[in-house]
């Protein structure tokens, strides 16, 4: 099996079709992350994973080979989620003016989605990445471009909210 680095090199030199293997390798991972962050909204989760792959390909030249591709992709996905949530907020605000019956169709583990429901976007991301994906706080800070102290305080705030 070819490594991620090899596939990236091939994608950069030989065209986008080599990137297909990378997409297939991480499609489920990104979809799962999207599902957890969006509270089980399949459409949004698919959008997030697709946007993440598109962005990742766009900036593939700037990929730092010292870090795993999966980490880099996670950072992109998390930022895609934040962008999408911002857009969605605007969209739902507009919808509520006209059609208040709008609601997503959640799929998956409802307990978990209900658990993280009261959290803010950043808190949701940090909580999910730390407790489900077991990323280190330094890595999460890197993904979100936040200071270590900010991440720690957001974690404790999230835990307080959940208690």
């Amino acid at each position: 099996m070819e490594s991620d680095e090899e596939l990236i090199k091939r994608s950069l030199s030989g065209g986008s079709h080599h990137y297909g293997t990378l997409i297939q390798r991480y499609a489920d991972y990104l979809f799962g992350l999207g599902m957890r962050l969006t509270g089980g909204n399949r459409e949004l989760a698919e959008d997030i994973s697709q946007q993440s792959f598109l962005r990742s390909y766009r900036y593939l030249k700037s990929f730092d080979h010292r870090q795993p591709y999966k980490h880099w992709l996670t950072g992109i996905a998390v930022n895609c989620f934040k962008d999408m949530a911002q857009k969605e907020r605007r969209y739902t605000a507009l919808l509520y003016d006209v059609e208040p019956s709008y609601s997503p169709h959640p799929e998956g583990n409802a307990d978990f989605f209900n658990l993280i429901k009261p959290l803010t976007e950043d808190e949701k991301i940090i909580f999910t990445l730390k407790y489900l994906y077991e990323y280190k706080i330094t890595e999460i800070a890197d993904f979100l471009d936040l200071k270590l102290g900010t991440v720690k305080s957001k974690i404790s705030r999230a835990l307080e909210k959940l208690k």
Binding site: S16, Y19, G20, I23, A27, F31, G32, S49, Q50
Partner: peptide, 17 residues
């Protein structure tokens, strides 16, 4: 969690790229 059709998803993403 699994994508509905990974191959189709990959194909569509590559088309967009």
């Amino acid at each position: 969690y699994r994508q509905r059709d990974k191959q189709l998803f990959s194909f569509y993403t590559l088309t967009l790229i």
